[in-house]
Design a protein around this nucleic acid. Structure first.
Length: 624
DNA sequence: GTAGGGTTAG
């Protein structure tokens, strides 16, 4: 598909014009540039003795610093050995290796003949030092000169696109490699997979990945990471197994990536299996692997296991501490998160912006208002970390949840950094909790000004209208959302039973044991109502009568997953479920009752945090 | 004469 599209561009335009985030140029693409190169490394050097060539190359290799390279450069110039391409190339390479791009460019400009290697060295040199403008400039010169693009120079520019996350430019280079017949080269494909993955177009990365005739460990790792990142962590783990089945043994980097995928997935059994596998490899728990495992266990619902890893790590950096603080935060254990902070300082680690986001978040989700305010004011005064919009969002969340909506609004109005939709979203969420319709409408207006693309915000506002019984306004909001091409993200809940993951949607009847699940829900409903549970229909958005509303509530995906868990999980085994959106108010109450009546621990991971239900109480203390 | 892939929040 892509291939034919690219050819289309070439045939119709001959010249390729493009502009992207980083560059705006016109390429004159020499379509016949894959002719064999006319010059060879040794062709022009008949007057330079062979031993001179060898001598210069070896003295260049033994140079320890730039000064020495320049000295050898002078000797080469006196000898006239520049006309030997191999010597000139080696010198070029040495300059680039030492980051002396000005010297390299001067040398390059003075070269009468250039080998394709010379081009790849200079283009790659600029990419290495982060001078992408010059990198692409020289790349354009390469194409103009008619030198062939090869398996050496193409990956260099593709990697530059990856570093810039410049998809448009990446696609263009991809087109050129196709035109030059390089699309089956291993290095080209491997870098293309990496580029597409980094630009978050995992489908394109995958397309190239499948056509590669051999895939090495790094390319597998890129693919595994990209799948996890793009919201399909199940696929990511399937790829990991497939890789191992092909006899490729994962190294530490691959394991860190899989651990990351497990964290995304939030599946405890998988996490334990990966942990056992890592133990089997004998790899030590270094700072990166250890930190990834803390995150994995915490996001799979066990903050205790995360702490167990944390306590056994020999070296911890600011990321490790921040991960552990964040873990306590989203598990609602704010006090423990706060205890870690002085310990971190004592161990000589200074906090960064993320540490403060984690701390403020922990305060917000545990209702620790004064502590949060103290951290917020000390972050700049004592630690020199400037509050950004994320920190303000945490503060708005903190004040908003506590019902101090006026203060939250005041903070937003007075803040010196640019406001984003997440910030307004936090205030809107608070308006919903405290049923503050007037403010919600004002906030919504500010959000609409920012042309919010998040369906969640529209859903939240229509929820607020629905709660207030303002059905017309609710319909208008919904309308606005659909006109903007936004669709409500369907709620999904996952539950892991043994090796398998089961997914439920609202009103899902696709599960083979669906009948039993609904029977179980009915029985539960009856028991719960006797115990005093009344379905809270506030979260049901439709203007329908109470009975129907209750029916809608009973088919929420999290309830289906819990009913299934009760059916299949052994006594004493906690029910762990993961939801892609926030758990609704009624399901929250439902979980509390089930945990009491059925004597089950229920651990719910929603889009924001964890809720541990035990004996009728939730760890979020209904702070939600 | 070819790298490249990895950890925290949102």
């Amino acid at each position: 598909m892509l291939k034919s599209k690219c050819h289309h561009i070439f045939i119709n335009y001959g010249k390729l014009r493009f502009s992207s985030a980083s560059l705006s140029w016109q390429f004159d693409v020499n379509c016949n540039s894959n002719e064999p190169t006319p010059c060879s490394q040794e062709s022009e050097c008949s007057h330079v003795l062979h031993y001179d060539t060898k001598r210069f190359r070896s003295s260049l290799l033994s140079c320890r610093n730039l000064f020495q390279v320049r000295q050898v450069h002078a000797q080469i110039a006196t000898n006239g050995a520049f006309r030997n391409l191999a010597v000139a190339n080696k010198l070029l390479y040495m300059y680039v290796e030492r980051g002396a791009l000005e010297d390299a460019q001067e040398l390059f400009d003075g070269m009468s003949k250039r080998h394709p290697y010379s081009w790849s060295v200079i283009v790659g040199g600029y990419a290495k030092v982060g001078n992408f403008f010059s990198c692409f400039w020289m790349f354009r010169e390469l194409l103009r000169s008619g030198a062939p693009l090869d398996d050496y120079s193409a990956p260099v520019v593709i990697r530059a696109c990856r570093d810039l996350k410049d998809l448009k430019c990446g696609r263009l280079i991809h087109c050129i490699t196709l035109k030059c017949g390089l699309d089956y080269g291993h290095f080209v494909c491997a870098t293309l997979v990496d580029m597409y993955a980094r630009c978050k177009v995992v489908e394109d990365a995958h397309q190239i990945f499948v056509k590669m005739w051999k895939r090495d460990l790094a390319t597998w790792t890129v693919m595994i990471g990209a799948l996890a990142e793009s919201g399909v962590p199940v696929e990511s783990l399937v790829f990991f197994d497939r890789m191992r089945n092909q006899g490729i043994v994962p190294d530490k980097v691959a394991l860190v990536t899989v651990v990351y995928a497990c964290a995304k997935l939030g599946a405890m059994n998988k996490a334990k299996a990966i942990h056992a596998y890592i133990n089997g490899t004998g790899y030590s728990l270094d700072v990166i692997l250890g930190t990834a495992m803390i995150d994995m266990y915490a996001k799979c619902g066990s903050v205790e296991s995360a702490r167990w890893i944390f306590d056994r790590m020999q070296v911890r950096n600011v990321i490790t501490w921040s991960a552990m603080i964040a873990a306590y935060g989203y598990h609602g254990q704010g006090e423990k998160a706060l205890e870690l902070f002085p310990m971190m300082l004592r161990s000589g680690i200074l906090p960064n912006r993320i540490t403060f986001v984690s701390l403020l978040y922990a305060c917000s989700h545990a209702g620790l208002i004064e502590e949060g305010q103290r951290f917020f004011s000390s972050m700049w005064d004592e630690y020199g970390v400037t509050p950004d919009v994320k920190h303000y969002t945490c503060m708005v969340d903190l004040l908003g949840r506590a019902g101090r909506l006026d203060e939250a609004l005041e903070m937003i109005e007075g803040m010196p950094v640019e406001k984003d939709e997440v910030l307004w979203g936090a205030l809107l969420g608070a308006c919903r909790i405290h049923r503050h319709l007037d403010l919600a409408e004002r906030v919504a207006r500010s959000l609409l000004k920012l042309q919010s693309q998040k369906p969640g915000h529209y859903v939240l506002l229509s929820n607020i209208y629905a709660n207030a019984g303002k059905w017309e306004d609710m319909a208008k909001t919904r309308d606005l959302m659909t006109k903007g091409g936004l669709r409500k993200i369907p709620g999904r809940t996952w539950i892991e039973v043994g090796e398998k993951l089961y997914q439920f949607g609202v009103g899902d009847k696709t599960h083979p044991r669906s009948n039993e699940i609904y029977k179980m829900l009915k029985r539960l409903g009856e028991k719960l109502e006797v115990a005093g549970y009344h379905p809270d229909t506030n979260d049901v958005l439709y203007d329908v009568d109470e009975e129907v509303k209750q029916g809608l509530l009973y088919s929420h995906s999290e309830k289906l997953a819990i009913a299934f868990g009760l059916l299949v999980l052994p006594q004493g085994h906690p029910i762990r479920i993961t939801k892609n959106l926030r758990v609704c108010g009624d399901c929250h109450t439902f979980c509390k009752f089930v945990s009491l009546i059925e004597q089950k621990t229920i651990i719910v991971r929603d889009a924001k945090r964890f809720h541990h239900f035990k004996e009728g109480v939730c760890s979020c203390r209904d702070y939600w």
